[in-house]
Nucleic acid binder design. Structure first.
Length: 885
RNA sequence: GCGCGGUUAGCUCAGUGGUAGAGCACUACCUUGACACGGUAGGGGUCAGAGGUUCGAACCCUCUACCGCGCACCA
């Protein structure tokens, strides 16, 4: 048998296995299968996106869940796909167009522009799919979907038409969040507020009826003064009561405007006077409606001033206009003062510019089934992990507002509404003969013009949980088992998917539990950099996962990331942690390599339980515990705990202790003992590989194959079960002895190290003990100590100054090191102080009658045992100390 | 303003009432028949602060401080 190389080489192994899995169609879900179903729909990445660490995290988690389910005997569907990402993709193409041809989309026209987007998509699209394959994702690629697939697009239109017919979707002229860069309306959820340092301008408005009397108004937006159509104060504000019904002179685009009283004004803020600008502020718009104020719009769609009445401001950008307006006011004596001011400004999530409240004609959805959606999560028909997101979800639903679903972009699902040509421009009449809303275009298209707008991308992705499945697939795999996604899209996507499922009833029966989109939602962490900042392209702090895969292997990346991904908290990413993942892969590789050097493995190792060494019993007991702990961690989606436990088990329990101890037998002459030791190695290795497979699919598959643990792929091997170990009498006794030996070994090693002796020098140790049960273990203890010899001598009398350690098995001496009495005395002093300290604490506790009476008996007993052990240890230490003087 | 997280070793983080833990980093020794991407040993913590509950608190309760996030307000 060829010896394995010293290091695992993921670059050749990983692609090899992925290709084989694909050839074997291992990831393809069978709707005819009699196995129970397990399904996940992948949150679709943007079609032209590339893999980020966020994807690596989410998709690794999904892969882990799917691979584990496959091993557990489920028929697994992991359904992948991509999102057309309306505004996002369009913006990218527009940017490219401006850079390369210095053109806007309007220069090209809708048809040509869309052709360019498709070109762009052909060139840059789907890269992420190949990258997911490098990560090892076990998706059913035969079912890959795209939000612009014909069938999917038809489903989106159908959803629109259904909701329209129920009058849940309506068209209206309303105040929306306007993105002046994307030139589109956006939803409330796409607005993020950021604190901005600006100025508060105090502007004087002269009272028309009382010349020389002025009203002072505090505003952050002097550039919208031309759109003021009233002044307002709180009806209870006595300072201004006498002005009610009078008028003020608007200082820019000079005009008389009425003074009104409205409850919406906070008398505490500024001067207690508000300038009412219905066209450019949501609150002002409402005030305007209450007082029948005219609406004057002085801003163009791109954020420039449109006000010929003030030529110096006309056509200026809104921010330049702000300064200019202040100048003009100053010149007209209308600016009382300015103060520095910090306030929150709504920014477009997409363009990162301040949004403009703007009145425009848009399509809106009045959310259906919000009560039901709330109840579903509250009553745990859908469970969130971590559960605290339930509150965030509830808060949103309780304050839900209509969703602006139309976008003034070209790339996306076009609104399936047509207007009769003769009626164009008459937007007041929404229903009836002049508008047609349907899944297919009207039968006489020449007489109609389709709505220019497209739908919010999320209006298509909210159907993702089931419109990605054909009927047969849906019958077997819907509702999905779990959704894995980031908490940042809990409103955008998770909540809306729940609402869509409730509204459209995609399930096989009417029952609500057959219609929910998923049973569980696991919210992943958000990955930040070492300094706690969000990963972003502009900061350049986002490592390319492909580079990490090249450097550390996909398995190293996966394992390293999973081990540090806590539930419910952000992750601080550090490449060191990925390096640890890679190192762990090497460790596992090498222990397998060691095993392989001693002959072929047993696929199904038969062990004679009566012949097991205490070390074997101990490691098998630890394996049992590990299986339990992992099971519990999976139940709560604690992937980091699973990874950490496996790491400790492999590295510490198995490699550092069991394998090292078993070398006595492996290198020994007793063939039967050797065979047993190797069989235990195989047993544990085989179990470990299966436990690790979901995290490190390639490496475990490679080792599974090299070690010939199974004829078939490890993917479908059953998970290891706990061993009963019925043939072992006194399992705890075995474990205890093994533990005592390990403690003794550590004490002996410490003695050597404290005595400043090189760690590789073969030493002679002497153990003074009355215990006869360990005589068989002497060679192993000696090996673990790197001792030349370990002598058991019950009557040993050390020469003064011989270093001694008190161990669970007796006193360990290191005679060679009799060098310096003074130093040994100091060392013993330190030990004595330590033991005395602990002894005092335990003693005090046991003297406390409250403790003895009220603490559980087992705890008290534990303390008693500890007390006697400490007392004995202290006596021996003192004895050794006296011998020195 | 309302709500949700967090504060434990230099760093990243585990730790649901019974002697404070891991990895990295650090120090010392070691290429000893799997592994230097390794082995062995070691140093390093008033568990943010204050009060309370309890025989006993990192852990449960209350308050405070600081950090992060969401929602609302934002003239």
């Amino acid at each position: 048998m060829a010896e394995l190389p010293k290091r695992y080489d993921p670059t050749s192994v990983e692609p090899k296995w992925y290709q084989r899995w694909m050839e074997n169609r291992d990831f393809i879900a069978d709707t005819k299968s009699s196995k129970p179903a397990f399904s996940i729909v992948m949150p679709p990445p943007n079609v032209t996106g590339v893999l980020t660490l966020g994807h690596v995290l989410g998709d690794t988690i999904q892969d882990i869940l799917c691979r584990r389910a496959r091993m557990q005997g489920f028929e697994v569907l992991w359904l992948p796909g991509m999102d057309h990402a309306g505004i996002g993709t369009q913006t990218a193409v527009e940017k490219h167009l401006r850079r390369t041809e210095n053109k806007t989309r309007h220069d090209l026209g809708r048809e040509e522009f869309l052709r360019r987007v498709l070109e762009w998509q052909d060139k840059h699209g789907g890269i992420i799919i190949e990258q997911l394959k490098r990560l090892g994702c076990s998706c059913d690629w035969s079912r890959q979907r795209y939000t612009l697939d014909d069938a999917y697009a038809a489903a989106v239109r159908k959803a629109f038409v259904d909701l329209y017919n129920q009058r849940l979707i309506y068209r209206g002229r309303r105040m929306v969040n306007w993105d002046p860069v994307a030139l589109s309306a956006i939803s409330d959820e796409e607005v993020v507020s950021k604190p901005q340092i600006g100025k508060l301008y105090f502007v004087r408005y002269e009272i028309v009826e009382e010349p020389e009397r002025f009203l002072e108004v505090a505003t952050t937006r002097p550039e919208t003064i031309m759109a003021d159509t009233a002044m307002a104060f709180h009806p209870g504000d006595k300072r201004y009561l006498d002005l009610l019904g009078k008028h003020a002179w608007r200082p820019l685009a000079r005009e008389k405007i009425p003074i009104v009283a409205d409850e919406a004004i906070d008398p505490e803020f500024g001067t207690g006077i508000l300038k009412v600008t219905p066209a450019h502020d949501a609150v002002d718009f409402e005030i305007g409606e209450r007082h029948n104020l005219p609406v004057i719009d002085v801003l163009d769609a791109d954020g420039r001033i449109n006000c010929p009445a003030e030529p110096q401001l006309d056509l200026l950008d809104r921010f330049k206009a702000r300064e200019k307006a202040a100048e003009l006011l100053q010149g007209r004596g209308a600016l009382a003062k300015t103060e520095p001011y910090e306030n929150n400004v709504g920014f477009s999530d997409r363009s990162d510019v301040p949004i403009e409240p703007r009145i425009s004609e848009q399509w809106f959805l009045r959310y259906p089934k919000t009560e039901e959606a709330l109840a579903l999560v509250r009553d745990h028909l859908i469970r969130f992990f971590p559960a605290h997101w339930e509150k965030v979800y509830a808060q949103w639903l309780e304050n839900i507002r209509d969703w602006c679903i139309s976008r003034q972009v070209w790339w996306g699902h076009r609104v399936p509404a047509w207007y009769r040509k003769s009626q164009m421009g008459n937007s007041k009449s929404q229903r009836g003969a002049d508008i047609y809303v349907g899944i297919e275009p009207p039968s006489d298209p020449e007489n109609w013009i389709q709505d220019q707008d497209t739908l919010d991308t999320w209006f298509s992705s909210w159907l993702w949980a089931y419109e990605t499945m054909d009927d047969e697939t849906r019958k077997k795999f819907y509702p999905t088992s779990v959704l894995v996604t980031g908490p940042d899209i809990i409103f955008f996507w998770v909540a809306r998917m729940i609402i869509a499922a409730l509204e459209f009833d995609p399930g096989k029966t009417e029952k609500i539990e057959d219609n929910i989109p998923f049973h569980h939602v696991f919210f992943t962490s958000i990955i930040r950099d070492k300094l706690g900042r969000k990963m972003s392209k502009s900061l350049g702090n986002s490592p390319d996962p492909l580079d990490l895969i090249d450097k550390y292997g996909a398995d190293g990346l996966r394992f390293g990331l999973m081990r540090i991904a806590p539930t419910g908290q952000d992750i601080r990413f550090d490449e060191k942690q990925i390096e640890e993942g890679r190192n762990f892969a090497t460790k596992l590789w090498n222990v397998a390599r060691f095993r392989q050097m001693h002959g072929p493995s047993e696929p199904a190792p038969a062990i004679d339980e009566h012949a097991l060494s205490i070390y074997a019993v101990q490691v098998l007991a630890r394996l049992n515990e590990t299986i339990d702990q992992i099971e519990a961690a999976y139940r709560d989606y604690q992937f980091n705990a699973v990874a950490q436990r496996l790491y400790e088990f492999v590295w510490s329990d198995y490699c550092d202790w069991f394998v090292e101890a078993a070398k006595t037998e492996i290198f020994g002459t007793d063939e039967s003992r050797k065979k047993t030791a190797l069989a235990v190695m195989d047993l544990v290795l085989s179990a470990t590989l299966r436990l690790l497979h979901p995290f490190m699919p390639h490496l475990t598959e490679e080792l599974w194959s090299l070690m010939t643990f199974g004829k078939d792929s490890i993917q479908f091997a059953t998970p290891p079960e706990k061993l009963a170990l019925d043939g072992v009498n006194d399992i705890p006794g075995n474990c205890k002895l093994a533990g005592a030996i390990y403690d003794t070994v550590q004490a002996g090693r410490n003695l050597r190290s404290e005595s400043k002796l090189p760690s590789n020098k073969k030493m002679r140790f002497i153990l003074r003990t009355n215990d006869n049960t360990i005589s068989a273990e002497i060679p192993t203890v000696a090996r673990l100590l790197t001792a030349e010899e370990l002598v058991v001598d019950r009557g040993y009398q050390p020469s003064p100054g011989t270093p001694v350690a008190i161990t669970p098995l007796g006193e360990m001496f290191l005679p060679v090191a009799v060098v310096d009495r003074e130093r040994e005395r100091e060392r013993l002093d330190r030990e004595i102080v330590k033991v005395e300290g602990e002894l005092r604490i335990v003693e005090a506790k046991l003297k406390n009658s409250s403790f003895v009476d009220r603490a559980p008996a087992a705890v008290v007993e534990q303390h008693r045992q500890r007390l006697s052990a400490l007392t004995a240890e202290l006596a021996k230490l003192k004895q050794a100390h006296e011998a020195l003087t």
